[in-house]
Design a protein around this nucleic acid. Structure first.
Lengths: 220, 220
DNA sequence: ATTATCTATAGATCTATAGATAATGC
DNA sequence: ATTATCTATAGATCTATAGATAATGC
């Protein structure tokens, strides 16, 4: 009788016919991601998640052990990947620093600007996940891989040795990118804000490249 | 009878004698800040706040209209200042860029490493305040004031004009500082993590200064 | 009389479970 | 028989209010 999101009357009791069946678990996880991103874990009720999909709240317990398990499933499905971070594949042009860094940034941007990634960012900016050990590790892994690049470039004479440690250079390069991502590439940002954020990041990379690699890349 | 935080038996009914009176409102706000920082708004109950101070939960309504009002009072008291941002006072040495930027960073660090500021950071990293209009504005104000500095320095020939726009330079300078603050200067960070964060920030500033102002500052 | 606390409680959630119901697939 | 849903409900919170109680300050 009651009209709901799924667009129709409330279901009757009993298993629904094949024609109406969907991937309920996936629908629930998706709804949960959106609601957790908007209202946080404590601010999202089991009831709200089920309602969003147009189902009775008890159906959640057929798919998840409890509310916490829903959150963990969302993180496992959409959460930060631990593997395949930062490397851009085996080696397009890692020995030409400036273009390589630009390509790295572009790749990251493409990944981070996806809706799913933005929802995840909003979720992390609630619930304190920004400070969770998991994210800190993912971030530090990413940072280490960039440090390794600078170390190599210093050895190869592509970066003035007196400029700073590989650690410091890596932070100077990734900092503005990471900050802009956290602050602007989230679920509530408008398309305009996101476009500005992407431009800011690319401008930073260009400025960084000019300051660190000087005219070397452009002229020699 | 029940022992509580304030260290004693539960109060009896009736106004407490002068000897036991404290600034209840301030105590409540302080407890609320800590709990909101740890568990978020929705994850913190009125009950938990009162309990933390060792009072009955109904006492909260003598001091605040409702739960939301507690949150707003906490933000008003501890929240991001809109005024007196970034300027370091009228003018210590704004025309010698490198030392000025270093002083700017040191001042910010001192402010941000205070316990209260760290609690606020944790609070913002829950409840989505990181993406609130209020913080975005505070941040953009800070950024603009740094942009103005770079603009002045470019005009004065202290920064190579072809390096990048004032906007881009400002982001390249403040990005690593802001990111490190958000990620490391929060309530749950250990003293070691915070020390590393402070060192990272100062290293970045040094690297930035060398890359952007080159030997000019050191030698001429 | 006013102020600052308490106790008790109403009413609204919220999580989770038990048990009914109807379609499916063997 | 199994699966995927529902209805109904228990029990635990949670917010907020009403009304009692005792110290304070005039």
């Amino acid at each position: 009788m009651t009209v709901d999101q799924r667009g129709g009357a409330r279901r009757r009791p009993g298993r629904p016919p094949r024609s109406e069946a969907g991937d309920t678990k996936a629908l629930l996880q998706n709804a949960a991601l959106r609601l957790f991103a908007r209202h946080g874990f404590a601010g999202t009720s089991i009831r709200a998640i089920a309602q969003e999909v147009g189902l009775s709240e008890s159906v959640i317990y057929a798919h998840f052990a409890n509310k916490q398990a829903v959150f963990e499933a969302v993180l496992a499905e959409f959460g930060p990947r631990t593997h395949d971070r930062g490397e851009l594949g085996p080696g397009p042009a890692a020995d030409d620093p400036a273009p390589y860094l630009l390509a790295l940034a572009r790749t990251a941007l493409e990944e981070w600007d996806r809706e799913e990634a933005r929802l995840l960012m909003s979720l992390m900016a609630r619930d304190g996940l920004l400070h969770s050990a998991a994210l800190q590790e993912a971030l530090s892994a990413m940072r280490h891989s960039v440090e390794a690049l600078f170390e190599r470039w210093i050895e190869a004479g592509r970066v003035r040795r007196d400029l700073g440690t590989p650690q410091s250079l890596a932070l100077s390069f990734t900092g503005p990118i990471g900050l802009t991502r956290i602050m602007c590439l989230h679920a509530e940002a408008t398309e305009d804000q996101r476009a500005a954020a992407r431009a800011d990041i690319l401008d930073h990379v260009a400025t960084f490249n000019r300051a660190v690699f000087g005219g070397a890349t452009a002229r020699s």
